[in-house]
């Protein structure tokens, strides 16, 4: 039995037939839509490497069935930059060396973007660290990650103030 599914992925509507309800959003993206920027680190919701935004909120795509998210609006790491123009979080990750091996990085960046939308941490490093704790980094790039998020939070706050 196949199921018709419609998703908006990185702004583009994708309609397709899903022949297997077991497919997670993560495996759908990686193995069927060839969007491999989203990573599988544990497949059990324990590392955050698969973080994407669904309807604007960050979730672990490994613990989400694709079929249950029919109609959802999905943003992955591939949809964050505008061509050559990096998202401020992406640029800040490079500037602050917020990664080493880079495997957790797409998840970290999506998580950071989601975190900023949640607007719970502000520019308090302690809150940022807590709010980013759903993304493990084995290389230990946490300092750079926090600095990158802080920089973007601070510059966005400044822009709001001057606007």
């Amino acid at each position: 039995m196949t199921h018709s599914i419609s998703l908006t992925v990185n702004g583009a509507r994708r309609d397709f037939q899903l022949d297997d309800p077991r497919v997670t959003l993560l495996d759908l993206l990686r193995e069927r839509l060839q969007l491999t920027g989203t990573k599988k680190g544990c497949d059990r919701g324990q590392c955050g490497a698969c973080t994407i935004l669904v309807d604007g909120k960050r979730i672990n795509s490994c613990l989400a069935l694709a079929i249950s998210h029919d109609g959802a609006d999905i943003l992955t790491i591939e949809g964050v930059a505008r061509g050559d123009q990096l998202h401020p979080v992406q640029a800040a990750f490079i500037a602050h060396d917020g990664f080493q091996c880079g495997f957790c990085t797409p998840g970290q960046i999506m998580s950071a973007i989601g975190m900023m939308r949640e607007a719970q941490a502000g520019d308090d490093p302690e809150r940022i660290r807590e709010c980013m704790s759903g993304n493990l980094c084995r290389c230990g790039a946490y300092a750079g990650i926090v600095d990158a998020v802080l920089e973007v939070q601070t510059s966005e706050a400044n822009q709001r103030r001057s606007a």
């Binding site: 955050g48 979730i59 759903g134």
Partner: peptide, 9 residues
């Protein structure tokens, strides 16, 4: 509990 991602879902 859990992580921000899990709490969102």
């Amino acid at each position: 509990g859990a992580s921000a991602q899990l709490r969102n879902a």
